[in-house]
Design a protein around this nucleic acid. Sequence first.
RNA 1: GGCGACAUAGCCAAGCGGUAAGGCAGAGGUCUGCAAAAUCUCCAUCCCCGGUUCAAAUCCGGGUGUCGCCUCCA
Length: 462
Amino acid sequence: MKLYNTRSRTKEEFVPLQEDQLRLYACGPTVYNYFHIGNARAFLFFDVVRRYFEYIGYKVTYVQNITDIDDKIIEQATEENQDFQEVAQKYAAAFLEDCAHLGIGAPTHQPRATQVMPEIIALIKKLVDTNHAYEVDGDVYFATTSLPEYGQLSGKKIDEQKTGARVAENMSKRHPADFTLWKASKPNEPFWSSPWGDGRPGWHTECVVMSQNYLGESFDIHGGGIDLVFPHHENENAQAMALSGKPLARYWMHNGFLNIDGEKMSKSLKNFFTARDILDEYDAEAIRFFFLSKHYRSPIDFTRELIVESDKAVDNFYKALEAFELDSLNVKEIRCPECLRLEEDFRSCMDDDFNTARAIAILFDLTRLAKNSESSAENRLDAARMLLKLGKVLGFFQHPETRLSKQMPDLSKALIELMLSYRTQARAEKNWAKSDQIRDDLKALGIEIKDGPTGSTWDQRN
RNA sequence: GGCGACAUAGCCAAGCGGUAAGGCAGAGGUCUGCAAAAUCUCCAUCCCCGGUUCAAAUCCGGGUGUCGCCUCCA
């Protein structure tokens, strides 16, 4: 298993801290708004990382934070004329809903920042006590100059950074790169009591606390979007290094950005679609396919046309599956040698820094095998089984029954079958006008008739 | 100014020194009363210029173009 480690900028052989166990942390949202389709890429990707490790036999402990106190939440609360907690609650609930809708499995632990306030304060206190942090008028800053390794993760040399150009200089800081650990509260702002007075945590510390709480002081993989490398992850790592001398995580994985028409999407540029909006319009599996069809580290350009294409592609998987009874597909043992070989290929793709694009190509190989009329019935069935099995590793086919069985009341089905029988009769009588009328009328209702050598079947089309 | 990524068919996209996966679209065949569906087949020499090598989309040098980070951000 090789994966690209941001820290070293190379693919490295993955060696877990403990055999067959993965301790994984991926940054979750700050809940001040609905998350957008770009965020969805990160959540979806690390969902696949988790699924794949489980598939190859790891016991995975997956932790994802929900940051529910932050300047932006306070701003949003002012805007919505609500308490910051109500805002955080609302968007945290929406986050969970949207993730479920996207087919993202629940993390093992999903702590919230406000639940670990004593631990956050204790951590900052330790940093102050060891001279890695200092207080100025109720604010506490991390002293980046106290840590020789600062900048290592992101490959930045702090002295070479442009300072003062786009960042207002903060005269209380000893060094421009120093970052806020604790922020004194202004009147009417939420606060927690601390040794430095009333205030709230800055960004970064909550992730250190929440990850270490569940995963230990140094764990296997830490992930998130590429933009988090600096400053967020650099600053998280700095705190961990300062405390224990060990990096927070040994492997750092970062997914590339999503662009809209070639331009960066971001909350501040306001050119974003929420995942919620896109989910209203398109199938979750189409969105998953769209993301996984490109390597996770590359930038990806979002267009509606590509989602539509993806949806058609996913359709082909289901067309291969629907020839078989669902119960017969869930058998564990698969014997067809070609299928087993493809499973090995699938693993070697995924073992190569999660090459999901190649992995998907293998799903299509299986699709073709499952439909190949020249191979034996057993082999076709096995191919469909393998397709289902490997597709699930990528998070597809979580509820195949809903897509495979036509989702409509039995009465409607019976009526369609009835119309179909009338048409079959008309065709037997060579009454083409009548049979074509039935076909066209049903099509207008979204029911497509497919004539085959063994008779006519129907499908619901959207 | 510092650091980094990318450039493959109409579109999306793999490829990591041995002669271009896969998907969408398109073309053709079979099937069909016709159509659809299904199925089979076909469809690129890899931004440009040099170099290394028996061999390069893949390595090196130089261009050109696009994008990102250095500021809240997945």
